[in-house]
Design a protein around this nucleic acid. Structure first.
Length: 590
RNA sequence: AGUGCUGUAACUCAACGGCUAGAGUACCCGACUGUCUCUCGGGAAGUUGCGGGUUCAAAUCCCGUCAGCACUGCCA
């Protein structure tokens, strides 16, 4: 037997018991005459004691062991003379009578501690060592709990978990597909699903009524801290539902997950129209933990001889409360430089300070009187001590930049409080989005998204602006500025679907070739349906107040989509290529 | 594809263009009977990512390249 207890189990009540523990050597403290070993497993750390006076051979053996050795120790639990209040097992120790070295270990390349000294790349390469750390292990355990609570809750609401295939058909819409060559069908390829979208709709046609799945999705796009090439979704679809019913269902799920995993009770989620989010926050995923909403200054700023504002489509700013005195010229200059980085690309940044002594100071003070600037401050609802930060330029771009500034000011002013969760439904997304590159509209959500009922008539007779303004029954759940998930009511009517394909520039033949199976299914009595999908990895991260999803994935990939541990992707043998009927293009010689 | 930051001992980092490239941690050896960041003494440890250039002299400056991270594009 390897163990009678785990390393986090023993307490003062167990004193006197004969126990066996197995685990890893966390650290040892050798005093010559006696040696302490901290034995670790995922449940905790228990101290083993060896004493020269009791058993010299055993003590000598213990002195020779290195970090991360795998040990089995048998002995008697006894009360410590010096207790360690920082540890659950700190009242007791094991007086060891028998010790087996189950396995030796090389010296690990970084310390297996909460505050590891390892960098990201090392930790990924030696992921099995990183996963020994309590924090990372807790993240993985948390993920497991979140998945179980999701299943419990949705199953309790009558949802059925259905698996959908991973080898499916490539479609041109959306993200790039990962493709898999077919050996038995030379020259043809499967694609890995970007999401089980079409399958879940077909499950609705099939009458499953309420479907969910915790499912891997694959997108071959460039990565970020919050983006992996393969990631997990809580994917759902429901029949005979309105948007309100879907939102209510997944609001219940979200509340349940917050309550059951981190004990946070969320209030009812507010809703905001997409247009309003863009107007007030310059983002379709506003962080509403703090205000600092956009204020437009076109009417008060234009026509006073300041050419930059006069020529701008939009003059818009935010009011940073209480910041007038804390931003010196140097700070403003630094903030301006931050805004001018190529990633953001603002040309300049205008400030208006309302100092505590009542005076007004501004970088555009030459062009505007104090009285004029006061009207700006009033417009923004500013108080003494506040500071306006104003950008100008083309409407959409300027709002996007101001969004970055707002978030940065939120960070600097400490307004993104840890443990504060502010969910938000963003609703009424546009149906279509203009794609400059291809010179056509594409679906903002996906091609099966239903336009709002009142938009149907406008759908075909519209000009460019009308098309841009068409609204869909599409919605996102945003928490603390992170897009947690999104969905829509789908089109279940074949005629409306064809209309939508027309708008998207699909010919009948293309639509048939790409989505014929779905359109075919819709001809056999498709129920009205809709659904949503949550980013499971992001939800894990947000619940833990973290930005990077990598720590919640047991085996994540790096920036370049490489698995550093197994070193994938990698070349394959010529025989494999041959079998797959694939000729590689010759690489240019470097 | 682009922008920025980083790359020095096993790890984390330091070193004005100039002395034998240092420190902490970890590691090895020795001492130590109540530690839990043990303590003390000693030791070993370097292709300064790689290639080229400028210079009397390069970890340091320049060019290229590779890798990691963050971001922009991209991600229905």
């Amino acid at each position: 037997m390897y163990r009678t207890h785990n390393c986090g189990a023993l307490r003062i009540e167990n004193v006197g018991e004969e126990v066996t523990l197995s685990g890893w050597l966390q650290t040892s403290r050798d005093f010559g005459g006696m040696t302490f070993i901290d034995l670790r497993d995922r449940y905790g750390i228990t101290q083993l004691v060896f004493n020269m006076d009791d058993d010299a051979d055993l003590c000598q053996k213990a002195r020779k062991l290195g970090r991360e050795f795998v040990l089995k120790a048998t002995g008697k639990v006894r009360e410590r003379s010096n207790k360690n209040p920082n540890r659950n097992t700190g009242d007791i120790e094991i007086e060891v009578t028998a010790l087996d070295v189950l396995n030796a270990s090389k010296v690990p390349p970084f310390t297996i501690e909460n505050d590891t000294d390892g960098g990201d790349d090392l930790r990924m390469k030696y992921r099995y060592l990183d996963l020994r750390r309590e924090q990372v292990q807790n993240n993985i355990i948390f993920r497991s709990q979140l998945a179980l609570e999701t299943r419990k809750h949705l199953s309790g609401e009558g949802f059925i978990e259905v698996e959908t295939p991973n080898l499916i058909k490539s479609t041109p819409e959306g993200a790039r597909d990962f493709v898999v060559p077919s050996r038995m069908n030379p020259g043809q390829f499967y694609a890995l699903p970007q999401s089980p979208q079409t399958f879940k709709q077909i499950l609705m046609v099939a009458g499953l009524d309420k479907y969910f799945q915790i499912v891997k999705c694959f997108r071959d796009e460039d990565l970020r801290a919050d983006r992996q090439p393969e990631f997990t979704q809580i994917d759902c679809e429901m029949s005979f539902v309105t948007q309100d019913e879907i939102l209510a269902t997944f609001e219940r799920l979200t509340k349940h997950l917050f309550k059951s995993t981190i004990g946070v009770k969320l209030g009812d989620f507010p809703r905001m129209e997409y247009d309003e989010a863009m107007k007030l926050y310059g983002s379709d995923k506003p962080d509403i933990r703090f205000g600092m909403q956009f204020v437009e200054f076109n009417d008060v700023a234009k026509g006073h001889g300041f050419a930059v504002f006069d020529n701008a489509e939009m003059v818009v700013g935010i009011c940073a409360e209480g910041q007038a005195e804390s931003y010196s010229n140097k700070h403003i200059k630094e903030l301006t430089a931050w805004m001018q980085r190529p990633q953001i690309g603002a040309k300049g940044l205008v400030y208006v300070k309302w100092n505590n002594d009542g005076s007004v100071k501004s970088s555009v003070g030459k062009f505007y009187s104090d009285e004029q600037l006061m009207t700006w401050l009033e417009k923004a609802g500013a108080k003494k001590g506040d500071m306006l930060l104003i950008l100008s330029g083309e409407d959409e771009k300027t709002r996007k930049r101001l969004n970055e500034l707002r978030l940065e000011m939120g960070r600097r002013m400490g307004l993104m409080k840890e443990g504060d969760f502010k969910p938000l439904w963003v609703v009424d997304f546009p149906l279509l989005e203009w794609d400059e590159e291809s010179g056509r509209f594409h679906a903002m959500h996906h091609p099966f998204t239903s336009p709002k009922k009142e938009e149907v008539d406008r759908m075909l007779n519209g000009d460019h602006e009308t098309m841009k303004s068409l609204k869909a029954d599409a919605y996102d759940l945003v928490i603390n500025g992170v897009e947690i998930g999104g969905g829509s009511i789908r089109i279940h009517d074949r005629a409306l679907q064809s209309r939508n394909f027309d708008l998207l520039g699909f010919s009948k033949e293309e639509a048939e070739a790409q989505f014929g199976f779905l359109l075919g299914a819709f001809e056999y009595g498709a129920p009205p349906h809709g659904g949503i999908a949550f980013g499971f990895d992001r939800l894990c991260a947000v619940l833990n107040g973290q930005n990077s999803i990598r720590d919640f994935i047991a085996f994540p990939k790096n920036n370049q989509g490489r698995d550093m541990m197994i070193d994938a992707p990698s070349p394959i043998h010529d025989e494999q290529l041959e079998e797959l009927s694939i000729d590689l293009r010759k690489q240019e010689a470097h």
